[in-house]
Design a protein around this nucleic acid. Structure first.
Lengths: 238, 238
DNA sequence: CGACCGGTTGAACTGCATCAAGCTGAGTGG
DNA sequence: CCACTCAGCTTGATGCAGTTCAACCGGTCG
């Protein structure tokens, strides 16, 4: 089984061309508005929590995570960004999170002044933020109310390409397949910090899913979903 | 000790007049842009999760919470809104949360079309969302990584007027007081659903804080903070 | 080959949930 | 005015999901 990045990972691929309205699932792009493009290697830090916020960033390709640290070292990954997502917003001129790439990533960067001066960009900004807020709401439910199995199942479902975190499409899947390959791009530690669990719990749950035949582990970061529907059943949203 | 609403509760008071830039701590208002004003009683539902999203709302006074439900009844309060906050945004024309007032509330309502057509409103929207994103990030840390005591302490700190969730101002408090009265406007159940805990745990932690002399309980929804600094010390961010 | 890093697995512990009473205060009716 | 009720809250006893601590495993790299 070959793992072709752009078909096997939701986090890959360029920004989708489809756009709707402000409140629709538009995925706007800063590219056509004269943003500077920058390339980062995997595990580069784009900015640190507390840094002065000078620019706005839009992820073009690859994956970026935003996380916060508590003084004793506890970490919470607050967002795992997909192409099209905007980051670097700051409420009081200071970044509230650290932004670190999970993979090589291409990013469009725009000076804050430019954004302030461009209604076009603000439109796109509002549109992207709307979407990201929804994801944050779902993640709050995950962190506040879901069990470990439900968290991991939700996480895996979220990674399925062309599903945008949406649950079961129903029994008559348009893809007519109930299986799928995933490329994780995250260590167990990163997953744990995203799901509010420990590394051991993530590992145990993944092993358990394997034992139950729901997934197959080809390499620790390459997982094959055997039964997407079963997995979806475990997310807590059914 | 008298409890005067607009001085004792962070959730009360009109939208602050102070505004800065897009990324600053601006608290924009739709009022001057011809929004319709609506008044709700305590515990009114503004819209339900799944309802078609037709309008955008900005809270003028009072408190509103947004929550999501899992099919088995588990609930997560994802946001507790303050005056100036915007809600009702929907990614796919459908509200992703239920919006319910906690107190009597005044709300400005704007048709989605109007927002789409108004760069001015989009600017304000982007500004408000930036702030709300930051709060959601902090809340993710709370839900994912904090203990019960830390959650309750963080929650109480968040309610202190004129602090916007900011931690210790330092030993030389500008208010020169280390105490404060709070009006909760939330039942133990609502607090528990906000903090990702059970009602019993919230109750136990509050009793514990009382026993330690950090707070005094005047009525279940009226709490006096005896030592704000001690409380702040318990939030996990120090 | 050995060191090392990320991951897995086991055994014991614990913080919070669950289950089950009891309490308190506001509202109601005799 | 007191008895009753009922909703929201508190407190105690018990259980368990997930953490913690510790050992081990397998692939990779110098």
């Amino acid at each position: 089984m070959a793992y072709v990045e752009h078909t096997t990972n939701a986090h890959y691929g360029k920004i989708p061309a489809v756009t709707k309205g402000l409140m629709g699932n538009r995925r706007a792009s800063f590219g056509e508005l004269g943003a500077r493009s920058a390339n980062y290697k995997a595990h580069d830090v784009v900015y640190y929590e507390g840094d002065e916020a000078k620019r706005l960033y839009q992820l073009v390709s690859g994956t970026v995570m935003l996380f916060k640290l508590l003084p004793d070292g506890r970490r919470q990954v607050v967002e795992v960004l997909r192409p099209g997502d905007i980051f670097g917003l700051a409420h009081a001129d200071e970044h509230d999170c650290t932004a670190e790439t999970l993979t090589d990533a291409e990013v469009h960067e725009v000076e804050m002044r430019q954004v302030e001066a461009s209604p076009e960009m603000q439109y796109q900004l509002a549109s992207c933020l709307t979407n990201q807020m929804k994801v944050l709401h779902e993640h709050a439910v995950l962190l506040g109310r879901k069990s470990a199995i439900e968290r991991v199942a939700s996480f895996l479902m979220y990674l399925i390409p062309d599903r945008g975190g949406v649950g079961c499409i129903g029994p008559d899947l348009s893809r007519s397949e109930d299986s799928c390959d995933l490329q994780l791009h995250m260590t167990r530690q990163e997953i744990a910090d995203y799901l509010g669990l420990t590394i051991e719990t993530v590992s145990r749950v993944v092993s358990d899913l394997k034992r139950r035949g729901v997934i197959r582990i080809d390499r620790s970061d390459k997982i094959h979903l055997n039964r997407i529907c079963s997995l979806c059943q475990m997310t807590g949203i059914h």
